[in-house]
């Protein structure tokens, strides 16, 4: 396929992704406002990270005045799935793809962009990826800016409603695999339960939400890895995203 056509296809497939991004980033913008970001800072923080859970973790850290080390750790934890995705992606480039293409595409490998790229047969065409990025990433940034600006103007009830959009998206990511795979279901339920307990029990409830997330994620994931290791012959990394193209 020629490069221009691939780019145009990317633009087309990027539209639904971008619209979803705008809505979710709007709810992120409401939190960003609480963390003290203005619309311009929100745009760049969003457009340069392109990560919903990662950005949410950052904003929570800022609001909680977490230490920089804690912020770095929580950023690793909240974004480690991208390590899986770009590892899978590294197997999908044609040998001729130059390094700068690989790096730029990897930098913007979000769940949806990864899904769209992997859903196409054959090697990843860089121009197709750039088409996706051209539409989706700016909408992610503008959505956050809009949330920072309009979150202020909207009535309290509307802000309250919009602030759950992000959690709705998280649910849409974790529930389908939990339905398919028993270990994921156990992990999600354990995550809900222990996170609730740790936020309520005396002594441990003083832990910041970031520390709580780090500790629980490591403990539960390690336990699952011991008791329910993924099958050996599975193409490990790709299964985390290739089969759920419509979801982040």
């Amino acid at each position: 396929m020629d490069k221009k056509q691939a780019y145009l296809n990317g633009l087309r497939d990027g539209i639904p992704i971008g619209l979803g991004y705008f809505a979710v980033a709007f709810s992120l913008g409401i939190i960003a406002k609480k963390a003290g970001l203005n619309a311009v800072e929100g745009f760049f923080a969003s457009a340069l990270s392109a990560a919903s859970a990662g950005e949410y973790a950052l904003l929570s850290s800022m609001i909680a005045h977490a230490t920089f080390l804690e912020t770095a750790l929580i950023s690793v934890i909240a974004n480690i799935r991208y390590l899986l995705m770009t590892t899978a992606l590294s197997q999908r480039f044609s040998e001729k793809t130059p390094l700068y293409h690989r790096i730029f595409i990897a930098f913007y490998t979000t769940d949806e962009i990864f899904g769209a790229m992997i859903a196409r047969p054959g090697a990843v065409i860089p121009q197709y990826a750039y088409g996706l990025v051209t539409i989706a990433v700016p909408l992610w940034g503008f959505g956050c800016s809009a949330g920072i600006i309009a979150g202020n103007v909207l009535p309290v009830r509307a802000v309250s409603a919009l602030s759950v959009a992000l959690y709705g998206m998280f649910l849409a990511i974790i529930v389908p695999p939990a339905k398919r795979e028993r270990p994921v279901l156990v992990g999600v339920c354990a995550g809900f339960l222990l996170s609730f307990l740790l936020s309520r029990l005396p002594a441990v409830k003083e832990l910041s939400s970031g520390t709580r997330t780090i500790i629980l994620t490591i403990l539960i994931s390690a336990a699952l890895a011991v008791f329910a290791p993924v099958p050996k012959e599975d193409p490990g990394p790709s299964e985390s995203g290739s089969d759920r193209k419509s979801r982040p």
Binding site: I77, F170, L171, I174, A190, L194, S195, A225, E239
Partner: peptide, 30 residues
Amino acid sequence: PVTLIRKKIENRFIRSFLYYVPYVTLAVMT
């Protein structure tokens, strides 16, 4: 990964751990 890791990760524990992390962390954060 795209610059360093050219081979597939073989260690089963690490692969499994990495596989579960995203779901668990989102559940904890939600």
